[in-house]
């Protein structure tokens, strides 16, 4: 029972990061109907940028801020690269382009920073808290991650529901034509979606980097986790992404805890496959995943 609780607690922080990555995928999907498979590549790249800043300045926060800024810039650039085939109604092309970006980003990161795994520092301690004389699996850093996730989700919620930008983005996602007729510059809202997703992904990257070591393709596995969570959540739903991101993190933490870490990808795959078989549209969605 003790171990179960420990695995469970540890899973929350894991889940928070997956939730953020899934959120990034959902933000892009909502704005442009593209699953951005380069998202974790962007997060990896911006984490390296953040790490470089931390190495130079010693400031974790400054690293985070610069990483977020880099995420915004990358998101904007990639948006331009990927949206053209979408406009041509070449949906395969859009998917392929995101993979092209992923490959290029990983290679570029390896060129600049090398292929060896690097350790990313944490702002707070990353060792178990002692409660009543026993060490439990949750660390101050885990709590930090969870709090950061909650704050970010709150900010996102406020931006999307309470601001002109958010209203424009949501309208553009639901019905681009009506949005344009209302005067919303929809193409800018698409870009905004990619920019915000890039920023959210950057935060996710910086948060996960200390726990997973940072190397050009150490985040690949998170792409699978985040995609699984986003799809189960409905791919269109921010609430779904967060809920199932955390859920996926918890489940994987239990799997990892009771068997071993190399099972996580397989379990995520099974989860994804089951979901696509039985409920392809996801839990929070009314759009169709199946084509025939």
């Amino acid at each position: 029972m003790d171990t179960f609780v420990n695995f469970f607690l540890g899973g929350f922080a894991n889940g928070a990061v997956i939730a953020l990555m899934a959120l990034a995928l959902v933000l892009v999907w909502r704005s442009s109907r593209v699953v951005n498979f380069a998202q974790v590549g962007q997060a990896m790249f911006t984490s390296f940028v953040g790490l470089t800043v931390v190495d130079l300045t010693g400031s974790w926060i400054l690293g985070l801020v610069i990483a977020i800024a880099a995420g915004a810039v990358l998101g904007l650039i990639i948006h331009f690269l990927v949206m053209r085939p979408v406009r041509r109604a070449d949906s395969s092309g859009a998917i392929i382009a995101t993979f092209g970006v992923l490959i290029a980003l990983q290679a570029l990161a390896a060129m600049i920073w090398g292929g060896d795994p690097r350790a990313y520092p944490t702002p707070v301690s990353y060792s178990g808290i002692t409660v009543f004389g026993r060490v439990i699996a949750i660390t101050p850093y885990d709590i930090f991650v969870i709090v950061a996730m909650v704050i970010l989700v709150l900010i996102l919620t406020i931006v999307l529901t309470r601001t002109k930008l958010g209203l424009s983005m949501r309208a553009s996602a639901f019905n681009p034509e009506v949005a344009r007729l209302s005067g919303v510059r929809v193409s800018r809202m698409l870009a905004a979606g990619w920019i915000i997703a890039g920023m959210v992904g950057a935060v996710a990257g910086v948060l996960v980097a200390p726990t997973a070591t940072l190397s050009p393709n150490s985040f690949d596995i998170f792409l699978v986790f985040a995609f699984t969570a986003a799809v189960i959540g409905g791919l269109d739903s921010l609430v779904g992404a967060v809920t199932f991101g955390i859920g996926t993190g918890l489940l994987l933490s239990l799997v990892t805890g009771y068997s071993d870490a190399s099972n996580a990808a397989l379990v995520a795959l099974i989860l994804l496959a089951l979901n696509l078989w039985f409920k392809p549209e996801g839990a929070f969605n009314h759009h169709k995943a199946r084509s025939v």
């Binding site: 009506v178 949005a179 209302s182 005067g183 919303v184």
Partner: peptide
Amino acid sequence: STIPDLTVGENLRLGGL
């Protein structure tokens, strides 16, 4: 030509932002 996922108020506010 309304957006069903938004509230009535949001649909209105969308015009002329």
